[in-house]
Each structure stands twice: as structure tokens, then as C-alpha cells.
Computed example of a mutant assay.
Amino acid sequence: MGTTSGRPQHNAGRARVVLGMVGDKWSLLVVCHLDQGPRRFTELKRAVDGISQRMLTVTLRGLERDGLVTRTVHHVMPPNVTYRLTPMGRTLYEATTPLLRWTVEHLPHIDAARAAYDARGDTSPTGSVPSEH
């Protein structure tokens, strides 16, 4: 990476794509469950609450494509597939663990704030109800 004025140059577009992938609704949850060790597809499906089979497939393919997860086909009867974090996937888990911990710790506060906000019925960005012309 080159530098300009002592600051690293970043390819913002490519970084945005990767951040979008790891910050999507499911990827970090899948990575979190894979930190516990290799998992079969069905184990992940049961562990990640609310994910559809199709979305889990799409998520795992994206994580595999980006080098964060490996997929291993076991040629047994019946055949099965396991997924595991790569070394780079483990560093993603380590980097996001504080965010995951923060999320779990603050869920009650977020729920309360949302309920209070929804009860006010205040949906305009400035806090006032727009007038009709």
C-alpha cells in the first residue's frame, strides 16, 4: 500500500465491498459459530437462529470465496460437508469479538430505546412532524 502525507492509501471501493460482506446480517453470526470448531451445514442451520437454508448457503459461499471459511467434503455414506474457519477467518472472529460482546450486552438497552422511540411516534429526522402543504 502506498502512502500520501504519511497516511496509507486505501481502496475505499474494495474495502466497502468486504466490509459489506462481513457486516451483513448473517456472516458474523456464522463466523462466531465456526469459532467453536468445524460444523456441518445442518449444525450451522440450527445454530444460527432465523437463517434460511438458501441464505446460509449464500453466506458460506461468500465466506469461502473470501478465504474466511474452508469447505471439506467427507466421502462417507452418507456424504457430508463441514465448514471451518481459516486462519484469516479466525482473525476476523478475534477482531469482531468485542462488537459481538457489545451487541449481546446492550440488547436490553437497545430494545428499551426502540420501544420508547416507537411509543413517541416520532419518525421525522428533526423530531417534528412535517406539515402538509
Results as ranks from 00 to 15, higher is better:
Met77Tyr: 15
Ala95Thr: 10
Leu28His: 00
Gly23Thr: 06
Arg61Glu: 14
Ile51Tyr: 04
Val76Trp: 05
Gly23Val: 11
Asp24Gly: 06
Glu94Thr: 13
Arg54Val: 14
Val22Asp: 04
Leu60Ala: 04
His106Trp: 12
Leu19Met: 15
Arg71Gly: 02
His33Gly: 03
Ser5Lys: 08
Val73Ala: 03
Phe41Ser: 00
Thr70Met: 00
Ala95Ser: 15
Tyr93Gly: 01
Val30Ile: 14
Ile51Asp: 01
Ala95Cys: 13
Thr57Arg: 09
Trp26Lys: 07
Thr91Ile: 02
Gly37Ile: 05
Thr96Pro: 05
Leu29Cys: 05
Glu64Ile: 09
Thr72Glu: 07
Gly50Ala: 13
Arg101Pro: 02
Met55Gly: 04
Thr42Tyr: 01
Gly37Gln: 07
Leu63Thr: 07
Val69Leu: 01
Gly6His: 11
Arg46Gln: 10
Pro78Ser: 11
Val58Pro: 04
Thr59Cys: 10
Pro38Thr: 10
Tyr93Pro: 03
Lys45Phe: 14
Asp35Pro: 03
Gly37Thr: 09
Ala95Phe: 11
Met77Ala: 11
Leu60Asp: 00
Gly20Ser: 09
His10Pro: 00
Thr4Trp: 11
Asp49Met: 10
Val104Pro: 01
His10Glu: 10
Val76Gln: 09
Thr42Asn: 05
Leu44Ile: 07
Gln53Lys: 12
Asp24Asn: 13
Thr42Lys: 03
Arg46Ser: 10
Thr103His: 02
Val48Lys: 05
Arg90Leu: 08
Tyr93Arg: 03
Pro98Glu: 00
Leu68Val: 05
Pro78Gly: 08
Tyr83Cys: 10
Val30Pro: 02
Asn80Tyr: 13
Val31Gln: 03
Val76Ile: 12
Leu99His: 13
Arg46Asn: 10
His106Cys: 08
His10Met: 13
Thr82Arg: 06
Ala12Glu: 09
Asp24Cys: 00
Arg14Glu: 15
Arg7Met: 14
Pro87Lys: 13
Phe41Ile: 05
Lys45Val: 09
Met21Trp: 05
Thr96Val: 08
Val48Phe: 07
Thr4Asp: 06
Thr103Phe: 08
Glu94Gln: 15
Lys25Leu: 15
Pro79Tyr: 05
Trp102Tyr: 09
Val17Thr: 12
Leu29Met: 08
Leu19Phe: 12
Gly20Ile: 01
Val69Gly: 04
Arg54Gly: 02
Ser5Leu: 09
Val17Asn: 01
Val22Leu: 13
Arg84Phe: 08
Leu68Ala: 07
Val73Tyr: 06
Arg40Pro: 06
Gly13Trp: 08
